[in-house]
């Protein structure tokens, strides 16, 4: 059945009167519990595909079903609600709000949900402790290292317990050792049942995933499936 089902997705951008086709008829299924890597050279369309899977970027053609919901059939504000309940995003540049502390950044997705301040705080503190930042709750992003900022971003992505995490080059801005720590954290979250789709350039990260989708020139070149990810 598949938790995420992309059906014949195409994306064309118009720029200065010119049409640029970024994705061509891509069909892709992500099963619940998958840890999937989208891999390909720059300009292959992998990040565009991620934004389409993330309900942020309507495809020019095709359909996206998540948990049976026709995501782009939803009105814009309902799509925001969908993101709030189903998705957690982790960005390459962390994208934390610079004037909010670590715990406030993590509380952010809960600000639009019916939780009391106390409940928000407890949930945010619990996930920050889970990612190993229990002692740095009140630090501003510029008082944290790159790896710590990434952990805050991961905590923010999982705080409202979405079934899916979408990550864009999560190790792209980190050194090798910190990148490995982050990948370990993703693996742990995946083992707890989270479905993860990750865009990556880094072949070392493929070690952690069970599916790798190779994209080139806007089409899926091949899909590698490991029966048993380490």
């Amino acid at each position: 059945m598949g938790l995420i089902k992309g059906i014949e997705i195409s994306k064309v951008y118009e720029s200065g009167g010119e049409r640029v086709a970024v994705l061509h008829n891509i069909s892709l299924t992500v099963e619940a519990g998958d840890f999937m890597a989208l891999m390909g050279p720059s300009g292959s369309g992998k990040s565009t595909l991620l934004t389409i899977l993330g309900a942020l970027n309507p495809p020019t053609q095709g359909k996206l079903l998540v948990d049976g919901i026709d995501v782009y059939g939803l009105k814009q504000e309902r799509r925001a609600d969908f993101r709030s309940h189903y998705l957690g995003f982790v960005f390459q540049q962390f994208h934390l709000i610079p004037y909010l502390t670590a715990i406030e950044n993590v509380m952010l997705p809960l600000a639009i949900l019916p939780y009391s301040h106390q409940e928000q705080r407890e949930k945010a503190q619990a996930v920050l402790e889970k990612v190993g930042l229990g002692s740095k709750l009140n630090r501003l992003p510029n008082q944290l290292s790159g790896g710590e900022q990434e952990r805050v971003a991961i905590a923010r992505a999982i705080v409202n317990q979405p079934p899916i995490i979408l990550a864009d080059e999560p190790t792209g801005a980190l050194d090798t050792a910190t990148g490995q720590e982050i990948m370990e954290l993703f693996r742990e979250l995946n083992r707890e049942g989270l479905t993860i789709v990750m865009v990556t350039h880094n072949e070392e990260t493929l070690h952690y995933v069970n599916k790798t989708v190779m994209i080139k020139d806007g089409v899926i070149e091949k899909i590698l499936v490991k029966d048993d990810a380490p």
């Binding site: 993330g54 942020l56 925001a80 993101r83 709030s84 309940h85 995003f89 960005f91 952010l108 639009i112």
Partner: peptide
């Protein structure tokens, strides 16, 4: 800009 993008990505409505 990026901050607004984050709000929208994590589910904030335009109204929020």
């Amino acid at each position: 800009t990026a901050e607004i993008g984050i709000y929208r990505a994590i589910g904030f409505r335009q109204g929020n």
